[in-house]
């Protein structure tokens, strides 16, 4: 295990960012999102969640894929190449690390998404254990341990120090690169810090949420439940829950045309939107209830059916951010589970 004084974190960031991009949670206009570090930027360890998850780094909300230029009868296509430079992401929480696993299932299985795969191959992820979980967190219900967040390198803040341990080859290489700044230490300080976080985790009000009504093979049981009618009513059909979610992976492909030049880009889509998966015949989810149901069935039934894991990771972002406070916790509880009283 390696140790660094928290007050020296900027030296660590400067060393890493000397020859590559470093993404981390940064404040802008009062909100914290992943951004590119530049010298002097401050990392605030008390911020638990970014508004948009780390998904935005590996699968950006908006990315150009190709451009087309027409000149007279000539038509030129210029594909935009996937990322080919190494980069590092710092400050990822355990829930977002699991969220990336869910994205991997989708984007790295056949047909592989080359843009996403390139970023995954070139990115080294440093996770940071959650020192102060929020009441909205229920990652532990999905078997996630916020004190052992995983990824290439995992860090935990213990008093004045931040302690790193590498989990992968990439992680070992990165810690070697900044070895001058780090000193060796044993596990005891990290273990103490984790023990005190665990005390809080035991008190999380949503941690004992009962997921037994959900999961593989539950489509028939849940699809036509009458509860959907009432639950969907308050929903505004906005994209907030999908856009802040670390695992929502649907995107749309659009063209943006200015003069002779057209840029083909993709951007996140939301199953809550009325034009989601619009096709020549229209849409197969014409009303709000169907769209609303899709989001939760996808996370809690269809994804488990297909990939053997829930694609909710309990980060609680949608719980905190939905403008009408309708969220996956309310949905899970509404459909039963004997401990969900």
């Amino acid at each position: 295990m390696k140790k660094l004084a928290v007050k020296d974190l900027n030296k660590f960031f400067d060393a890493i960012s000397a020859d590559q991009l470093l993404y981390m949670p940064l404040e802008k206009g009062g909100s914290v999102n992943y951004g590119i570090y530049s010298r002097g930027d401050k990392y605030d360890p008390t911020v638990l969640h970014t508004v948009k998850s780390v998904k935005d780094v590996f699968f950006p909300q908006c990315e150009s894929m190709a451009s087309f230029v027409t000149a007279g009868k000539k038509f030129e296509v210029a594909p935009i190449a996937p990322v080919d430079q190494s980069f590092t992401v710092f400050g990822v929480r355990a829930c977002d690390v699991r969220g990336m696993e869910a994205l991997d299932k989708v984007f790295l299985s056949d047909p592989v998404d080359s843009y996403y795969a390139a970023r995954r191959a070139h990115g080294t992820v440093i996770s940071v254990a959650c020192s102060a979980p929020e009441e909205t967190c229920f990652c532990t219900a999905f078997g996630i341990d916020p004190t052992n967040p995983g990824a290439d390198i995992q860090a935990v803040i213990a008093g004045e120090d931040i302690l790193f341990s590498a989990n992968t080859e990439k992680g070992i290489a990165l810690l070697d690169k900044v070895a001058d700044l780090l000193s060796d230490t044993d596990d005891s300080a990290a273990d103490d810090a984790k023990a005190s976080i665990k005390e809080i985790l035991n008190k999380l009000p949503l941690a004992d949420i009962d997921l037994s009504a959900w999961g593989e093979g539950k489509t028939e049981e849940l699809f036509d439940r009458p509860e959907w009618d009432e639950l969907c009513k308050s929903c505004l059909g906005c994209g907030t829950c999908t856009y802040v979610c670390p695992t929502c992976q649907c995107y749309d492909i659009r063209d943006y045309k200015v003069g002779d030049k057209t840029t083909r880009y993709r951007c996140w889509d939301s199953c809550m939107y009325s034009d989601f998966t619009m096709a020549a015949h229209g849409t197969n989810r014409p009303d709000k209830k169907q769209r609303f149901r899709q989001r939760f069935m996808h996370k809690l039934v269809y994804f488990p059916d297909r990939y053997g894991m829930f694609s909710c990771v309990g980060c609680g972002r949608c719980v905190a951010k939905c403008p009408v406070s309708m969220n996956i916790v309310k949905v899970i509880k509404a459909m039963g589970g004997k401990n969900n009283g």
Binding site: C238, G239, Y243, V244
Partner: peptide
Amino acid sequence: QEQLSKCIRCNACRNA
């Protein structure tokens, strides 16, 4: 610019 560049185009403002 600082404020609007944070926008995630979720359309919650419009829908509400």
